[in-house]
Every structure is written in structure tokens, then in C-alpha cells.
């Protein structure tokens, strides 16, 4: 029950909340604004907020000098590929757990989630070594596999919770209607679970896009995604704020937009259902 409050009280809430919201959002806003300034305006003292000469030059320069599109493409492949591969592996597993639970199901699920808590740095060298042996260091396929593996527990977990919401009787009906297991999953379960699968894909693309341990340590020039590209800016040469901002804006813009759609899934996916 929402209680009615006075407009005065509501105005106060609004002012306070907007102030805090804008404060938290300010670094992002400022980065976006700076990306449209010239380098001189970007470091002007005192700082210029809005009344500068808007320019798209920085974006052009970033693309031209560093071949931004290639890094973007690497990010797209790694985030998209790892998520897709993960979902393909996770759907059957989540089906099993949700619809044919056994006494061990819960333990398996918990164990899967606990692998997510393994500190990456603890297995850095073995993975590095394996990558060299297999010749997949600094390749997109190598990163697709690693990022898929670190997100697989979350994908399985999320799909499991969505599948649990589908009544088992409908799948039994399909079985009675003569559907094989494969047909049951393709024609009945998957279409019904589309919203859940979409949310899972969304959140995991975000997580994969922003992953910054393995992408930094297992790539060099060839397969580096945007995380690594941005990190390369950390050794500055001269005036570069505007270009840095342009590169940053391009790197975060797609995910910010996806992220706004996935607020609800974030809670479900990242707390493993411990908060409802």
C-alpha cells in the first residue's frame, strides 16, 4: 500500500534523490560531455560544462589511430560468443535440474555456483600455460571459452530459476503428445522460456563485455577486446582527455543501454536467489 504523502514531502524527496542520482551519474555524464570537446577545452581551467564547441573529431581520431572497430569487434565476438555457447550448454543442464530434480540437484547447483567464487588469480598461470600449449593465447576462441566457463554457473543458475517457473504438466503433456525429449525442449520449453533466456543472455553479455581479468591477461594485440584497448590508454602521451573520453564512451555506451533493460535480472543473477 503506497501511502499518500504531501506534495511538499514528495518534492523534497525528488530534489534529494535527483541530486544524489546526478552526483553518482556525474562521472559518466562528464566523460560523455568531454568526448565532444576539443582537447584544449577538455582541460580548460576552470572546466567548461556545456558551452563548448561540440565536435565529433575525437571519435574519428580514435577510430583512425587505434582501429577501434577491431577491438569493438573482438568484444562483440567474445561477449556474444561466450554467452551463446554458455546458453547452449546450460539449457539442457537447467532443464534437467528444474524438471528432473534428484537428491543431488541442489548440491550440484551449489557446487557450480561455488566454482564462480574461485579467485581467478589462483589459477592464472595454469590457464596461461594451457593456453600456450593449445596455441590459443591471444585468440578470440580462447577467450570465448574462458569467459563462457566463468559465467556458465550464472547462466545455469538463472535458466534454472526461470525454468522452475514453467509448470511441469505442460512438458508432460508434450511427452504424452508424442514429443521426444529434443522436440519437447525445442517446441515447448524454449519458446515458453524465451523471456527468461533473453534476460539471461542480456545479463551475461554485460558481464562478459566488462570482464577485465582474463581479457587483460590472455590477450595482446590480436584478440584484445575493449577492456584491454582502454587499458592501453593508461600510459598517456600528451593531451588526450577528449580522445580518452570518446574511446570510453564508445566502450560503455552499448552496455549502458543493455544494462538499463536488465536491472531486474541483475538482482536475480548476481545474488543467486539469496535476495528476492
Amino acid at each position: 500500500m503506497a501511502r499518500s504523502v504531501t506534495n511538499q514531502r514528495k518534492a523534497l524527496n525528488t530534489a534529494l534523490a535527483w541530486a544524489v542520482g546526478l552526483l553518482i551519474f556525474f562521472p559518466i555524464l562528464w566523460t560523455i560531455l568531454t568526448s565532444f570537446k576539443t582537447e584544449a577545452q577538455a582541460i580548460a581551467s576552470p572546466p567548461i560544462f556545456l558551452n563548448f564547441d561540440w565536435t565529433l573529431e575525437n571519435y574519428a581520431v580514435v577510430q583512425e589511430r587505434s582501429n577501434y572497430m577491431r577491438f569493438l569487434w573482438n568484444s562483440v565476438i567474445i561477449a556474444g560468443g561466450s554467452t551463446l555457447l554458455g546458453v547452449i550448454i546450460a539449457v539442457p543442464a537447467a532443464w534437467s535440474m528444474a524438471f528432473v530434480p534428484s537428491r543431488r540437484t541442489k548440491d550440484i547447483l551449489m557446487w557450480m555456483l561455488s566454482t564462480k567464487m574461485l579467485p581467478a588469480v589462483g589459477v592464472l598461470y595454469p590457464i596461461y600455460l594451457i593456453f600456450i600449449r593449445l596455441g590459443i593465447l591471444d585468440t578470440r576462441i580462447g577467450l570465448v571459452v574462458v569467459i563462457m566457463l566463468i559465467n556458465l554457473p550464472i547462466i545455469v543458475w538463472m535458466l534454472y530459476t526461470y525454468f522452475k517457473e514453467i509448470p511441469g504438466e505442460i512438458l508432460e503433456a508434450a511427452r504424452m503428445d508424442g514429443a521426444t525429449l529434443k522436440e519437447e525442449i525445442i517446441y515447448v520449453l524454449t519458446p515458453m522460456a524465451v523471456p527468461g533466456i533473453a534476460s539471461t543472455i542480456l545479463l551475461n553479455i554485460i558481464l562478459a563485455w566488462n570482464e577485465a581479468f582474463w581479457t587483460l591477461n590472455l590477450t595482446a594485440a590480436k584478440a584484445a577486446p575493449l577492456t584491454a584497448f582502454i587499458a592501453s590508454y593508461s600510459s598517456p602521451e600528451g593531451l588526450f582527455y577528449a580522445k580518452l573520453s570518446a574511446a570510453s564512451t564508445m566502450a560503455i555506451a552499448p552496455i549502458l543501454i543493455l544494462g538499463w533493460f536488465s536491472q531486474k535480472q541483475l538482482v536475480r543473477g548476481l545474488t543467486f536467489g539469496a535476495v528476492k
Binding site: 509448470p167 505442460i170 508432460e172 503433456a173 511427452r175 504424452m176 503428445d177 514429443a179 515447448v188 515458453m192
Partner: peptide
């Protein structure tokens, strides 16, 4: 179950929500 030649009507009806009535009936 699929090979027993039996048809079942469930308590919750268990209709396929993403299919039209026509497709539901045609499914088997």
C-alpha cells in the same frame, strides 16, 4: 508415454501458451 497410445487431459489443462488453439490441437 509417447508410445503407449494414450492421451491425457491435465488438471491445469497444460496447454502450450505460445501456440494458437489450432497449433495446440495439432501438436500431437
Amino acid at each position: 508415454p509417447a508410445k503407449r497410445g494414450l492421451a491425457m487431459v491435465f488438471q491445469s489443462y497444460a496447454l502450450y501458451p505460445h501456440m494458437s488453439v489450432r497449433k495446440n490441437i495439432a501438436f500431437p
